[in-house]
Amino acid sequence: MRNFLAILERELKSYFFSPVAYVVLGFFVLATGVAFYTIISWFNNYSMQSMMMAQQYRQMPPAINVNQLAIRPLFGNIAIIALLVVPGLTMRLFAEEKRQGTMELLATSPITNWQITLGKFASALIYYATMLLATGVFVGLLFIYGNPELLPILSGYLGLLLLGGCFIALGLLFSAFTENQIVALASAFFVNLIFVFLGWLGNFTGPTMSKVLGALSPLDHLEDFSKGVIDSTHVIFYLTFIFGGLFLTFVTVESSRWRGAR
């Protein structure tokens, strides 16, 4: 535990002192902001129009659900943006250690590869959570000008955190493969895209195949969370995905010793 914390602490400090992490954070918040702006503009138009329609036909104005029409698409967008930026967070985790030779320090210290892997994973997850927290500003604005429901928002964030965990586990794995950060970034990014592509590909296949592909795609499991449903199927999917990624990372780190690679 103490070793895990030592790794975690060092990695976190390294994040908060590193310009790359702030660029990633800045890009994330900017992109989320643009998405938020677009969604809210559309939402405004939509509510104006439906009000006018209602007046025209002398009906009750329709109930417009902020959660459904603004927050849910926002979360969908955050997920896509996370997919793009998380590899930027994870690329250095192992690649940098290998390049600057510090892997040799860790590997000869009384500390296990699990402690190293988990410490690094946790640090990236915490940094990612900070990024998510920053998007809370946008949701906060909705609370000031409207009255969305809180619980679906919280469950949505939980979903985003789990989804991010998947991306981080994957990114960590690719960082363990190489000592070149750019290679780690590009390959993690590429595989993330494939997973998203799977869900999208489902739209063009038969009903059975569509279900299978959707079940494999991390993004498709997010929807229920932002509806306020915490379904154990999805939680288990995410946790399995994360653990699988971490396990493969552990194996990679452990085996590089056997292969005699640096």
């Binding site: 070793n3 790794i7 060092r10 400090k13 390294s14 030779g101 892997m103 040799e104 860790l106 009384p110």
Partner: peptide, 30 residues
């Protein structure tokens, strides 16, 4: 590992840390 100290050919330094912080970190994991 607890009983051995190792200086590899390329000193394993976290170049973004201060000397003191680095040594404290190493002391922790050792």
């Amino acid at each position: 590992r607890r009983r051995i100290g190792y200086l590899p050919e390329q000193p394993p330094l976290y170049t973004d840390m201060t000397v003191k912080a680095y040594l404290h970190f190493v002391a922790k994991i050792k």
